[in-house]
Design a binder for these strands. Structure first.
Length: 798
RNA sequence: GCCGAGGUGGUGAAAUUGGUAGACACGCCAGAUUUAGGAUCUGGUGCUCUUUGGGCGUGAAGGUUCGAUUCCUUUCCUCGGUACCA
């Protein structure tokens, strides 16, 4: 090759790879399936950013490697095309979202081509197309018919900017919307939910999957299982009772007051007249505060006495009932029994309001005058529980409570059902209609897809845009009868993405979402590569949907993604790239200057794939030099047989690169090839055999250049990716001589080069003779001689 | 606070059953080539000293060991996640 004309080469091979007949030429399917998936993207209309490249480029390198190892690699790509940005864009520019989305997809697709990834484009999906959302609607109806989708009035997270409801997962810790940044409000509305809580326990089992530990931890934490008991407290002078959940029933004798969440329904009913004013103003004050402000109260809990007393069921004592902001309405029953002696929060509250603290657990480092004792120990001051360990006391008291019918053991989850309705336009319509009495009915199959109407007023005004569509209303009445009304909410886009990986393999099926046999053959996904930010949303929803469909008989596996890998984040000057910070780096100028192969290699060379790194403009040059070096080496004259030392270098490199690639260690794999090329520069000539190996080693990293060199030096019409990955010859990969390090008292004093099978004694003898070593031995007595085979000798002297 | 990951040259980083710390690359220095610059090539490049050699060095302080980036204890810092879940 004369010069590295990457523009020409890259354009040429991107076209050829899109030609299915070329890619099938010489390719025999080798029977081992490999489903390699990256998280599909939202078609935004602007160019690909570094994040896309850092996800898709390395993932493609791994897929190509797997293909060359003989796997039948399935690597699809598609578009998560419903969602707010398209709708907001439509509002702003007055373009129909369907149109702008399609434009964006076209741009995005050609952009994706520039990465040069081997995508099975004939298996693509676009979630906003009716050919796809028809089956998202099917999914909804299947769940609905099987009691896994339901409607209820709920206090929900309302985003006042986007004018829609958000899932809990979309509300950030500070109480703002993940999307719009608005402070989220609480609003009671009729909403659709998926019953993900039915699967809470099974979702906690990660036995079958190879996922990053931190992601598993996050899901565990999100699901939040805790084991304890619920118990009922009667209220003195009232006919109500308060139910609480506790993980420490063993400390019931130490419960000295109850606390209700300010929103608890009994608050109004049990507040005594003397406390009414205080309680009302407190509740009012709390309700004005948003989530952020309430969390900020962290350090300073507040509360008010209701004036009423509950009766501790275990000892009959009257204990005051308070309301307090540290009790959450949304967890458990919204009420707690406070055991200040053995709970930090209750302790703090009790101290502040001078409530009594009773110690009921004893342990080695108890200091009840200064802090709560929250550890296990021996139960005291608790009548029949005295002397038991807290563990045994739990069992015993639950038995007792159950017998007396005042409590029972209970497992509580933090996980809530998945709220899927959205008051927005650009999403999958919920295929439900209401009869004149207001009862919901599924839209029958023959009317699916239940199409998204066109004649809507997009502008958000607090009710769903679909409500403005005359067509939808007419359609509903025409099909179902006068007085029938359509559901006007659409689905959360996470519903679309919860099953797209099931649709790829059978994307053109018009009679079902997918063929069971096809799916069972190719799923689960063997490797799923994407950002860690989806840990508790998409990845949890997808697991739920897979399990639900399994139980409904549509597929036979338990988990969608066998192996999960999170690529790291590429930062700029130490912080995340974002438009608002103005620190984004566009790949375009680097592609222009160095080409796509160089760019993607550089991303992989920067550091470990799962750690990401900080972007530096300068380093990319080294990769460009490296690829040019490869061209120079391939340009060297051909000989029949390469010199032995060069053969050895290449086999050693093959061994190392293969091992690194299997471990997804792209950075070290590339550095090994670099070292290899550095050594090969001194060769006057090389055989084609060695050149072929070299090109293959680089091919997953720089696929365009490799194809071009391959075409030049080998098969004219068969892609290098239809050939097998090279295997190294172990004998050639090993060195004949090895360098042994010589230490005296653990300090390096010299080296000695020996044949690889030299015996221990003669190596030690040779070491002692080393000039620099011997001077550290003079006049000393040798205490110990340590020999680490093929590594080092350590002589210990005194 | 809790959970997870991490801290190694001027920079990105290598180094795993504990065995030559800094591979590979950027940058920098010197040389070659060039009218010059750029590009390319060759050599050097952890710090330091009394430099054919030595001392120090993987956030800090201890410990185990013939030998520690690696194992143990204590501690500091950074990043990601989470946040009163009873």
């Amino acid at each position: 090759m004369d010069e590295y004309n990457f523009k020409k080469i890259e354009r040429k091979w991107q076209e050829k790879w899109n030609d299915q007949s070329f890619m099938e030429n010489g390719y025999s399917i080798r029977g081992k399936k490999y489903y390699s998936l990256t998280m599909f993207s939202y078609p935004s209309g602007s160019n690909l950013h570094i994040g896309h490249w850092y996800n898709y480029g390395p993932a493609d390198t791994f897929s190509r490697f797997k293909r060359m190892l003989g796997y039948d690699v399935f690597q699809p790509q598609g578009f998560d095309a419903f969602g707010l940005p398209a709708e907001n864009f439509a509002i702003k520019h007055n373009i129909h979202p369907a149109k702008s989305t399609q434009n964006n997809i076209d741009t995005m697709k050609s952009q994706l081509d520039s990465i040069g990834a081997l995508y099975d484009w004939h298996k693509t999906v676009t979630t906003s197309q009716k050919e796809y959302y028809r089956w998202t609607q099917w999914l909804f109806l299947e769940l609905y018919k099987n009691n896994l989708a339901y409607r209820k009035k709920a206090t929900v997270n309302w985003d006042p900017i986007d004018q829609t409801v958000l899932a809990n997962e979309q509300v950030l810790a500070d109480g703002t919307s993940e999307r719009s940044g608005a402070l989220v409000e609480q609003k009671p509305l009729e909403q659709w939910f998926f019953k993900i809580t039915n699967y809470a326990d099974e979702l906690l089992s990660f036995d079958q999957i190879d996922w990053p530990k931190k992601t598993i931890r996050m899901q565990e934490h999100w699901i939040g299982k805790s084991v304890g008991a619920t118990l009922k407290f009667n209220i003195d002078k009232f006919d109500y009772n308060i139910e609480v959940f506790t993980t420490r029933p063993d400390t019931l004798f130490g419960a000295t007051y109850l606390v209700l969440a300010p929103e608890h329904p009994l608050v109004n009913k049990i507040t005594t007249d003397s406390q009414k004013d205080d309680i009302l103003s407190y509740v009012k004050e709390i309700s004005k505060k948003n989530e952020l402000q309430r969390t900020d109260l962290n350090k300073d809990k507040s509360g008010i006495f209701t004036g009423s007393y509950a009766i501790n069921p275990i000892n009959g004592k009257n204990i005051p009932i308070w309301i307090g902001d540290y009790v959450l309405a949304g967890y458990g029953s919204g009420a707690i029994m406070a055991v200040p002696g053995h709970d930090e929060r209750d302790y703090e509250f009790a101290r502040k309001y001078k409530l009594s603290i009773v110690q009921v657990v004893d342990g080695p480092d108890v200091d009840i005058d200064n802090e709560a004792y929250c550890k296990d120990g021996i139960v005291i001051n608790s009548d029949f529980l005295n002397g038991l360990s807290t563990k045994d006391a739990k069992i015993k008291i639950i038995e007792h409570l159950e017998k007396k019918n005042i409590g029972k053991s209970k497992i509580q989850f933090k996980l809530k059902d998945w709220l899927i309705s959205r008051q927005r336009y650009w999403g999958t319509p919920i295929p439900i209609v209401y009869d004149p009495e207001g009862n919901p009915h599924p839209v029958p199959d023959e009317h699916l897809p239940w199409e998204l109407p066109d004649d809507v007023e997009y502008k958000p005004k607090g009710t769903s845009p679909l409500g403005t569509s005359n067509e939808l209303i007419d359609r509903t009445e025409k099909i179902f009868g006068k007085g029938w009304k359509p559901e006007i909410d659409t689905m959360d886009t996470f519903v679309c993405s919860s099953w797209y990986y099931l649709r790829y393999p059978d994307n053109k099926n018009t009679s079902s979402p997918f063929d069971k046999k096809i799916i069972n053959d190719i799923l689960p996904v063997d490797i799923y590569i994407g950002g860690a930010e989806h840990a508790t949303m998409h990845l949890l929803y997808a697991r739920f949907v897979t399990k639900a469909l399994r139980d409904l008989g549509y597929l036979d596996f338990d988990e969608p993604f066998k192996k999960l890998y999170h690529q790291g984040t590429i930062t700029k000057d130490g912080s995340k790239m974002s438009k608002s910070k103005g620190n984004t780096v566009s790949p375009d100028q680097f592609i222009e200057e160095y080409g796509s192969d160089t760019f993607r290699c550089y991303l992989m060379f920067m550091g470990p794939f799962d750690e990401g790194g900080d972007w530096n403009d300068k380093g990319i040059k080294g990769i460009y030099r490296f690829l040019n070096k490869l061209i120079n080496i391939c340009n060297k004259p051909n000989t029949d047989t390469s010199e032995l030392k060069f053969q050895k270098i290449i086999h050693k490199t093959t061994k190392g690169v293969t091992a690194d690639l299997k471990k997804i260690k792209f950075n070290t794999a590339i550095s090994k090839i670099m070292s290899c090329l550095n050594e090969l520069t001194s060769a006057n000539s090389l055989s084609l055999k060695e050149k072929h190996i070299l090109i293959k080693l680089i091919s997953p990293f720089a696929p365009h250049l490799a194809e071009e060199l391959w075409e030049e030096l080998n098969d004219k019409n068969i892609s290098i990716f239809n050939h097998f990955w090279p295997e190294h010859d172990e004998n050639l990969a090993l060195d004949d001589t090895i360098t042994i390090a010589i230490q005296v008292n653990g300090k390096l004093r010299g080296n000695v080069e020996v044949e690889k099978d030299k015996d221990k004694d003669s190596i030690i003898e040779l070491s002692k003779q080393n000039k620099n070593v011997s001077k550290f031995l003079d006049g000393k007595s040798i205490i110990k001689e340590i020999y680490v085979p093929s590594k080092l000798v350590n002589i210990v002297v005194k």
